[in-house]
């Protein structure tokens, strides 16, 4: 392991130690259009640590614009919301198959005011962490 990889891991753990929030990770499985159920083939994490961001954001809603065919409109309604991101050390997920997938659930038991979150996308940050985009399932907190 190179010195920079080692440094990155040290930084990653330090970041977690300072900013950590405890999460519970529940893998879910669903048919393409069905409701999801816990996926027993992948392991859940009861006591994970990660860095959670919940940033306020405002954006228009797009209404199916397919320009070359029929003109459509962007909706005039604006949605104000919060974008939820979770950064987690890849050490929690030993193989690619263990990594979170779209539809999996994250909960934050230390913060009971936060709703449950569903995974939208998972990207590796190029180093030792995963950057996970979430959508809330309950009301925003």
């Amino acid at each position: 392991m190179g010195i920079f990889d080692r440094l990155d891991q040290v930084v990653s753990r330090t970041v977690d130690a300072i900013n950590e929030i405890t999460f519970v990770f529940t893998p879910m499985a669903a048919t393409p259009n069905g409701r999801s159920k816990p996926d027993a083939s992948r392991s859940a994490i009861e006591d994970g640590k990660g860095v959670f961001d919940y940033i306020e954001t405002e954006y228009g809603i797009e209404l199916g614009v397919r320009k070359s065919y029929r003109e459509a409109n962007d909706l005039r309604a604006l949605q104000t919301g919060r974008e939820a991101f979770l950064s987690v050390d890849r050490a929690y997920f030993p193989t690619v198959a263990d990594e979170p997938q779209q539809g999996d659930i994250f909960e934050f038991p230390e913060k009971p005011d936060l709703p449950r979150f569903e995974v939208v996308s998972v990207r590796r940050d190029g180093m030792s962490r995963l950057s996970i985009r979430l959508v809330h399932l309950g009301s925003q907190a």
């Binding site: 690619v96 198959a97 990594e99 997938q101 779209q102 539809g103 939208v120 996308s121 998972v122």
Partner: peptide, 10 residues
């Protein structure tokens, strides 16, 4: 609605 990605395994 969700983006198409994350097709790592199944």
């Amino acid at each position: 609605i969700q983006p198409m990605e994350d097709f790592k395994t199944k």
